[in-house]
Design a protein around this nucleic acid. Structure first.
Lengths: 351, 351
DNA sequence: CTGAAAGCGCTTACAG
DNA sequence: CTGAAAGCGCTTACAG
């Protein structure tokens, strides 16, 4: 009892209104098989005869059939949506991460649903749970600092939602982790400043509540040590990863006697603050003070002098994170996913 | 034939694994009604007796029931997803717009799916159509410059997908438009510079292919005219809304004799380029040259001197756009959605 | 104002 | 290797 005709060919012009898209039943009828067999082809089941498969694939291609993700999701009890759960306020980071995730999802039929969150909210965990359960998300990608929250990982494991945590260091089983290895970036910053002949080197770290702050500092100290140097306690300040905290911390450092000749800031925002503080104190960059940031966000090229910094391949990391979430093999060049030094105008030889 | 028990209460601890969420059948049974009546309550149908409604609502609240958006979408032939289709490369704009859209969707059960696009791609329209049709999107929000593309509006109208276009000026029927009224921002910039006593005032516009470039310039010219001034042709440059084009155009303007004493750049990126060019040419800002931008992105406060600019309430605009898409009344204060002058350090009295 | 039947477009579980 | 039946959790169309 076919109540419906085969769909028309795809040549209707604009203005004819929406035409019904073909369904699995249409394809089954046109290919002369049951819809279960079409379903097997869609889901790449090995139990389909080669000729049958090819016939069905031809019909699918001819009619531009694409399975309805909602119907599939309802039957699968799982949607084809991937959630990005984040609380990093930097727009550049967020957008780069989104682009990377979309790169990795391209052509897969999955879509990206964004979910900024606030860990300080009393309803944070309940909201997140509602979001994931209601949408029956295929999986979730978490970025710092929410990726560092063990309650979130426990919640997702509890409700059986796949997840990948992007963090500066391993916090979970390998299949749940993408490590950005920020420590290497800190080392590179130290090596660069040491090679320029600096000896009085200061550091403004991010807040202690962020793993990346520890990692960047630990890498920096390791790099200094390898060069026979050390981070003196009075040259170490703890900031908040914000522009304002960069100004304040740099202000303190520039009051010291002797002044440091170089400052490594834990991110570009704070490095921008260091440049500001140096200007206010009448300290020339890079002639009297070298400055290194971390992130290589767009602002690094807009500042004056332009900022020497550590590039973090956020988009590439995003691509890898979804690939891992969808169970695909690790692609790409290993070195493309590591932090790397970018030398610009804010660093120079020590006087 | 109830194969399933009523769901347990919501007090299971972590580690017990996922518990089945209640369905419409559970609620119907517990409330002693048919599932159709529960459906009526969910969909706010008026044809439910007050007492029945209250009893059902109590059961829903008690069990934390939330209808499955996939099942609902399948039956409705429409999902509960809203797409953001954009090609503006500025991360700050994108993130602010996303936050605004999410503000407007909060508590509605809708989710935001992001879809960056490239109008230059040969498969652009086909990709967009596939995205919208496959996901059966509830609606789409378009931002500049893709919002200015009539082919996109025609496509969405053709396939019956609701859409709202965010643009600097009206391009479509009122229900499809959110106007950002950039012209008012241009006027404010002109008024500010005129009040500071500037007479030789230059403008670097965005590319002619963007409506906002025309609107900002037209507003600027109108503002100058109101002050008895005019934009001389040799003081008008066309940039590309990029940092590099700002440097290049400002370089040309600073070669002129007499030099302009003020430059209004069509966006903050180009204004950052103007500051850079002024530095290279040894022109002091604001002592010898006043600079005004447009957007008030984060960079405006990081530049030195910090940038006088026009704030565009992108997040608020996003909130209004979804409200309109979902058919809600226009909320919020009217003035909160208009561009407004923000005075910082890059402008001063004409010498 | 309320409900039983059929259906949205897929997949699972079972049978052959 | 293939298919008929039942089901995922909702809504529409029809009856009363």
């Amino acid at each position: 009892m076919a109540k419906r005709e085969a769909p028309e060919t795809d040549d209707h012009g604009p203005g004819e209104g929406p035409r019904r898209r073909p369904t699995i039943n249409d394809i089954a009828r046109l290919a002369g098989v049951s819809k279960k067999t079409v379903s097997r082809v869609i889901n790449a089941s090995p139990y389909v005869q080669k000729e049958t498969r090819e016939r069905i694939e031809a019909v699918i291609a001819e009619h531009g059939y694409a399975p309805d993700p909602q119907a599939r999701g309802l039957a699968f009890r799982r949607s084809f949506l991937i959630g990005l759960v984040y609380d990093n306020p930097n727009p550049q980071y967020v957008v780069n991460m989104q682009l990377g995730l979309l790169d990795g999802m391209k052509g897969s039929g999955f879509e990206l649903v964004v979910h900024p969150c606030n860990r300080a909210s009393p309803t944070f965990l309940a909201d997140l749970r509602g979001f994931v359960e209601r949408q029956k998300l295929f999986g979730v990608v978490l970025t710092p600092s929410v990726s560092e929250d063990e309650r979130v990982a426990a919640l997702l494991a509890d409700i059986g939602c796949a997840y990948v945590r992007v963090a500066s260091v391993s916090l979970d089983a390998p299949q749940h982790m993408i490590e950005t290895r920020d420590r290497l970036g800190g080392e590179a910053a130290a090596r660069h400043l040491a090679e320029l002949g600096h000896r009085r080197i200061a550091h403004i770290s991010g807040p202690a509540s962020f793993r990346s702050a520890h990692e960047r500092r630990a890498g920096f100290e390791a790099g200094l040590k390898a060069a026979g140097l050390a981070l003196e306690p009075h040259y170490a300040q703890e900031g908040a990863y914000t522009f304002e905290s960069g100004i304040a911390c740099a202000g303190e450092l520039l009051k010291l006697d002797p002044q440091p000749t170089a400052i490594f800031a834990g991110n570009d925002e704070m490095a921008a603050g260091v440049l500001q503080a140096a200007r206010q104190a009448g300290v020339a960059v890079p002639a009297e003070l070298s400055v290194v940031g971390f992130d290589d966000f767009e602002i690094a090229r807009r500042l004056w002098p332009s900022l020497t910094t550590i590039r973090t391949p956020t988009r590439e990391i995003g691509r890898l994170a979804v690939a891992q979430l969808m169970g695909r093999a690790d692609e790409g060049e290993p070195q493309d996913r590591l932090p790397a030094l970018v030398v610009r105008e804010s660093t120079g030889p020590a006087r």
